[in-house]
Nucleic acid binder design. Structure first.
Lengths: 368, 368
DNA sequence: CTGTTAGCGCCTTCAG
DNA sequence: CTGAAGGCGCTAACAG
């Protein structure tokens, strides 16, 4: 049985009237219970109970406070795909951890339509943003920046006014490249998409600077560094770009790579899945490295770059909420396994090699 | 370089002044651009740009509208663990999908402290809640209900005033039980925790009605149904309760089960992980069924109950946002594989068997 | 320990 | 096509 009709929502004033106090006393009862006499407090709470008042209205409160105690997260053009990516989920888990600790809500901004995404970012009732890595020209970045709220971007791009947090992808890729290309005569790279069109193709000597996604750009640059270090000619290193991060796609691209450059004997891949697909397509011996140290990598003895997306998520959240030095570069390590160590290549001290870290990258210049 | 000092935040009125129009015209410019002369609109937008105004303040807007266009999600006592559970992640993905479509924000309520959880639920600026299954006495349920906003609970409990969406766990468990116990002499059950204390133990003849978690309760009841159907004595069926959903824990419990009841020859497990742990602990032949049809189940030919948490998440979100019949019971199917079909047990038509579904369960009684 | 006043930033309503 | 008044529900700042 319902009690009242369309029943206007119950407000503090209603409760105040019923308890025969002023609205302020009701407010205090909820916000600083100490400041109210126990008896009065009880009376207020009883009145609230009777009227079905559930506490101060969150929107009104936010308006008054000028803050929402909510952190906004933008997970990329296709929010929905983000949940299929274990790395993105780990990242989100890290954010959630920090939010739960601090009592902040975690608002996932509903992106995916393209068109309206910037407006949705702008219209989100949040105090700060964490943005999953994207291209420099993503309008979502500009939208977040335009709100004058703190913005932390994971792994770049490094726009003015935003903080960037992530590992040094270039250095990590270089380390992986040195390992996987060490004895190679015909090295190749398996890459993530280079821009938002997400096309797959195979081409040699790709210039990292033409790549829109900063993560992809940096890793590519790192592989090139390694190739140069080893005296290899980058212009002859074919790069296979995979449209999506899955086995089928990677296999197709690998076949194209082998067609273009028969005799490929080393593949530096930007993901463990891609790396294993490469292995499954080869007929001859192949040195391979992956990225992320997923369970797959462990199960298949894949050399890989390990990083903690969870920690990076936590760091992003903390930075966005202004509770940590925004100068933060996360750590990574190259895990050497038999996919590069065994098989007639120079044996190696195996296992883990920790890399020293340069200090900082993030900028916090508040405004242009 | 910053332009202004502490700089009070820019408001519509400021923009109005700068553009020499009334605040209402600025409001219209953002909310009903059509209604404003193109020239005026441009002037307003230019003024906004110049002042760094990023559009209407979300909190003020919500206060005025009386709605937030945000859906609240409560993922359980330990928000952080939720991201380690692939099923919970799939559920969240389904919610996110619906939210993204409709342009609703998805607010993850920061639970985990116990103490403050109900307050955090109450104080969330959302229009409706989706709550991941919990116990009937979870204060979070009461808190959500007290706000008079729509509440959808996944898989129960079925509190007055809330809608419940999920599969018929009891029927599914019965089907699985009939399959796995078919030829059994010494059946056993591997269960999730029975209450929020989450203790592990082994005991026979557990009464499902004493179990606090509705999912666990229903599955247990279904296994009991199957046992009774098969003429087995439930009071002699040992139930091993695992504190957590992981291999190590399940193995320990399995060892205890074998100690208490040597010769166990069939195990109905509430999760694929538990099921595989059971297999890894047995020495003799063992029929086993799992739950969720994870990749693990597929790779190991495990008979299992398949369901789509993603679809259930989407259904919960749609129901919470009032855009679907709140009468919804999702489908499941028993997938028979060699973990129950091979090995000297009666062979069977293998593969998939679709089950007919009863219609509804959710109630929408708004209030007691 | 409690009350008064004022206003957070916006948009609905109703006039021009 | 534009504007004036009023109030959404709450709390800071200051009395008393």
């Amino acid at each position: 049985m319902q009690s009242r009709q369309p029943s206007r929502r119950v407000t503090m004033t209603d409760v105040a009237r019923a308890a025969d106090v002023s609205p302020m006393t009701v407010s205090y009862t909820y916000n600083r219970p100490q400041r109210v006499a126990a008896e009065t407090r009880d009376r207020v709470l009883r009145a609230a109970q009777a009227l079905g008042y559930a506490g101060p209205d969150p929107s009104a409160r936010s308006l008054r406070y000028g803050a929402t105690r909510t952190l906004g997260v933008v997970l990329g053009e296709h929010l929905t795909y983000a949940f299929d990516d274990p790395q993105a989920v780990a990242f989100l888990a890290g954010i959630a951890e920090v939010c739960a600790e601090r009592g902040y809500g975690l608002l996932i901004v509903p992106t995916g339509t393209g068109e309206e995404d910037p407006d949705r970012v702008t219209a989100a009732a949040v105090d700060a943003y964490v943005i999953w890595t994207t291209t420099a020209d993503d309008p979502v970045l500009a939208a977040a920046g335009s709100t004058h709220r703190p913005v932390v971007v994971h792994s770049g791009p490094d726009r003015a006014g935003t903080t960037v947090i992530g590992i040094d992808n270039r250095a990590a890729a270089r380390a992986a490249g040195l390992e996987v290309f060490a004895t190679a005569r015909r090295p190749a790279v398996l890459s993530f998409p280079v821009d938002r069109r997400r096309e797959s193709f195979v081409r040699s000597g790709v210039d990292p600077d033409t790549v829109a996604y900063p993560v992809t750009r940096d890793r590519l640059a790192g592989y090139r560094d390694a190739a140069l270090d080893l005296g290899l000619d980058w212009s002859e290193v074919p790069v296979g770009v995979c449209r999506t991060n899955d086995v089928a796609e990677a296999r197709t691209v690998m076949r194209e790579l082998f067609a273009v450059a028969p005799g490929i004997d080393a593949v530096a891949a930007m993901g463990d899945t891609l790396a294993l697909a490469a292995l499954s397509e080869t007929t001859g011996p192949l040195r391979v490295s992956g990225w992320d140290d997923s369970e797959l990598a462990r199960d298949n003895n894949l050399t890989t770059v390990a990083q903690s997306l969870r920690e990076q998520g936590a760091a992003c959240a903390a930075a966005a909420l202004g509770e940590s030095a925004p100068d933060h570069r996360d750590s990574w390590r190259l895990i050497r396994r038999s996919s590069t160590v065994g098989a007639g290549t120079r044996p190696a001290p195996a296992v883990v090699q920790r890399m020293a870290l340069p200090p900082v990258t993030g900028t916090t210049a508040p405004e242009m």
